[in-house]
Design a protein around this nucleic acid. Sequence first.
RNA 1: GUGGCCGUAGCUCACCUGGUAGAGCACCGGAUUGUGGCUCCGGAGGUAGCGGGUUCGAGCCCCGUCGGCCACCCCA
Length: 425
Amino acid sequence: MSSIRAIRGMSDILPEESCYWQFLEAQVRALLASHGYAEVRLPLVELTALFRRSIGEVTDIVEKEMYTFEDRNGESLTLRPEGTAGCVRAVIQNGLLGTSQRLWYSGPMFRYERPQKGRQRQFHQIGVEAFGVATPDMDAELIAMSARLWQRLGLASHVRLELNSIGSSAARQAYREALVTYLDGHREALDADSQRRLESNPLRILDSKNPTTQEILAGAPALADFLDGESRADFERLTELLDAAGIPYVINPRLVRGLDYYNKTVFEWVTDSLGAQGTVCAGGRYDSLVEQLGGKPTPGIGFAMGVERLVLLLQAAGIAVQDAARAQVYAVCVGEAATSAAFASLARLRDALPDLHIVQHTGGGSFRSQMKRADRSGADYALIWGDDEVANGVVTLKALRGEGEQRQLPVTQLVDELAGLNRAS
RNA sequence: GUGGCCGUAGCUCACCUGGUAGAGCACCGGAUUGUGGCUCCGGAGGUAGCGGGUUCGAGCCCCGUCGGCCACCCCA
């Protein structure tokens, strides 16, 4: 084994996996297009300041997980750890905020974390963002669209929607103070991480996995009691719309998101089938982020899906996907004359039937070894060229699956013959 | 950043208390002078992650290091 390896947490996606990625991406593209969402392609690298200002200075992402480096001109750059910040930057910079916008993007994100199941250092997200609409019908649209995606992927029974409102920033501020006051009385009983977060990010204590901490939280003031009237009304309306659309949800009053820019609606789609990293899609509203990053005040809401996690879930759920590169026809050709004849005939065949998957054998070998390859390729048919076929201007067609004797046909009939087979299969 | 488990053939894994490597699958060839899938026969393939230590002798024990998996943390 060579000493040159892939970087830890940055894995290759091999053919066995890539067919799941293609399936997922195709479904997502079709769904987003059908709802009027347009794709944007964004840089992987942004100014470090963009992430510091949007994600939040005291978050783990900014404090210890970013891939930050100095450009040759001395500017501090960062490999994007998430997609929303760059998307917001792009809509501001390109003047897209005159009307409401429905956008999506996909690609790799980078966080320096310890790899585990469902967590890589280079991981992939598909993000969806909607700008310019403050009303909860937009929240409902995004959630309903994601629900429809699980339906289309065959994952609906494997995920559940958790929902919460974290209110306005003023409401959150008031709640934070009440929570800190309460928890301060139990400081000694809290786990070490929660004690630390008491100073840095008290709301995050709510979703601590520590049992003792959770017991203490049972008596804590509730975020819902601190919500401002508008947040309360919008959340109520959102649940009505979800009910109307027949989308089940559970309200999780402990659900808070890790990134600072969220307000009002936050939600997560979670699964129990993937171990510890069960969040497969998550998002929320961010009504002050655009202004915070220098754009004119514009509300926004969005979510991101973790592609690796969804692929794991597709596999865990036993969803069958077809291998896009599988051969339908494998061409066997033994000898130089046969290889030349095969090249000539296959060129015409590919012209006539561009969607037919044809693999021509390369590298020589006996009939026996080539037939073995044909079988292993998974192809439905073998096309066989040898000296006899060349001499007679014919080709042998043999079904590799199911019934049927092999037969010879004039090469001039090849296109018609396979056109029929292609439709049938 | 912390912890647990694990690194032996391309893959999945054996090798009882240390005596210097093996199976299945995959691959190549043959039985079948131009025909795959089943069967049989044969073959190739390994500096046991790497470095050090203990020992007459280490895949096995000890230390270090790198890597993988899972969990904490964090989050998609």
